[in-house]
Design a binder for these strands. Structure first.
Lengths: 232, 232
DNA sequence: CGCTATGTTGATCCATATCAATAAGTGTGG
DNA sequence: CCACACTTATTGATATGGATCAACATAGCG
């Protein structure tokens, strides 16, 4: 693997504390690849051969069942995905495809498991990472089960606004079609949901969102740290 | 803590590989308590003071938001809950209450974190446990987003049948009211869903279910190991 | 034995999906 | 650079799954 990515990857919580020697061993068999947009990387049900690290671009994790498909999460740089499958040596539960042109590091799963077995700091970092992932999914599930689609959209906008710096105006960071299935609704329904949020001070112009009445939207959305905070 | 529970707890994957010394240290400050049914054990948002271990009975993990409430999972003996919050020293994302009369061991979270810091086998066992939990929630989320309530019920019955030994007749292991919110629907809707499944060979008599046409139900439910298998 | 919580059934309403048509981008090759 | 094809976004009409409200039945339980 080219050296120029080492520093970025080394900076991730997951790899920050492990020994230099183990880090080198872990990435000895790894390689970096560039992918164009809309390329399938892995498919659910397959054995987990590689731990993936998104270095640039974006990756969509999605699942299918019986002709239906839904987007489960979006992975942005710099982070890993399918860690749980790698560790358990179990089949992927989700498929992954690039959304944009992406640069992705592939680390052989057997090496991850081997180093996990010998490097205690790495093992503890994995605990922290998995606990974080677990809590994120629990939040996503609460979001799904406790809120209507309109409420999910409103809270999504507030979160996105915060991620974009907190200003009244910001951009959606992916296409509405995908946003719809992330939020668990159809594109048509999302379109109408945006219009419904006009009443609470949301103006939509293409991918550009302007929030004209922050208080009103917040009153409607009722954001909750136990559902919407990504950090804790 | 009384000695008679030690063996049961020691047998859990989570504690099986750690040193005797650390195990003793971990449970030095622990205690076992008996609770009647329908008692609140913890509330979401609170700091995670104790890791809980269900020794007998059953516990419901649920969440609320803005007057709504939903059941997230049911914990049966012998297993732990809220491990992720304990490890991250973060607030609970879910509340917990006893369903039945239950015996529960409480282990101070700070002790769990302390032993996690010094016992490498324990740290690795936690990885395995959390990876398992993570995958379970992903499956639950796929179930929610990809299936209708009728399909969720059909697959639930097949799973429950398997857990009960695979015979044509078996019992629901909790009340329909709770089953409804676990499956993400109202009690009324569950009632009607049961009647709809008559057409696929499901006969309901109180808590007793008889599956008269296994193939027909299976054809409708289309169970999928990547959603319905608890083991992998 | 009656009280209270659970379960069922019916009537109705609402949220969301589906189907269909159109508009607006977006990229491609000539 | 434009014309064409193709995907995405919007809008309208309609269907349907599921929620809500209300009444009643039933079953535990003190």
């Amino acid at each position: 693997m080219p050296q120029d990515h080492y520093a970025d990857i080394r900076g991730l919580h997951l790899f920050a504390d492990m020994s230099d020697e183990h880090f080198a061993q872990l990435f000895r068999g790894a390689y970096v690849q560039n992918f164009p947009p809309h390329i399938d990387l892995i498919h659910e049900g397959e054995p987990s051969d590689f731990l993936h690290i998104v270095l640039s671009g974006a990756v969509d994790l999605y699942s299918t069942w019986n002709t239906r498909e839904t987007s489960m999460a979006t992975i942005r740089p710099i982070s890993t995905f399918i860690l749980a499958a790698t560790i358990k040596d179990a089949p992927y539960l989700m498929s992954a495809r690039t959304i944009e042109k992406s640069r992705i590091a592939l680390v052989p799963s057997q090496d991850v498991r081997a180093i996990f077995g010998v490097d205690d700091a790495f093992a503890r970092a994995i605990v922290s990472e998995l606990a974080q992932c677990y809590r994120s999914v629990i939040k996503a599930q609460k979001n799904l089960k406790l809120r209507s689609s309109l409420e999910r959209l409103a809270n999504y906008l507030l979160r996105q606004q915060l991620r974009a710096g907190g200003g009244a105006e910001f951009e959606l960071d992916f296409e509405k079609r995908r946003l719809a299935t992330v939020l668990g609704m159809t594109p048509e329904n999302l379109s109408r949901a945006f219009k419904s949020l006009n009443a609470y001070g949301v103006v939509v112009e293409g991918n550009r969102i302007r929030i004209t009445d922050q208080d009103d939207l917040t009153r409607f959305a009722k954001p909750d740290p136990l559902i919407d905070d990504f950090s804790t």
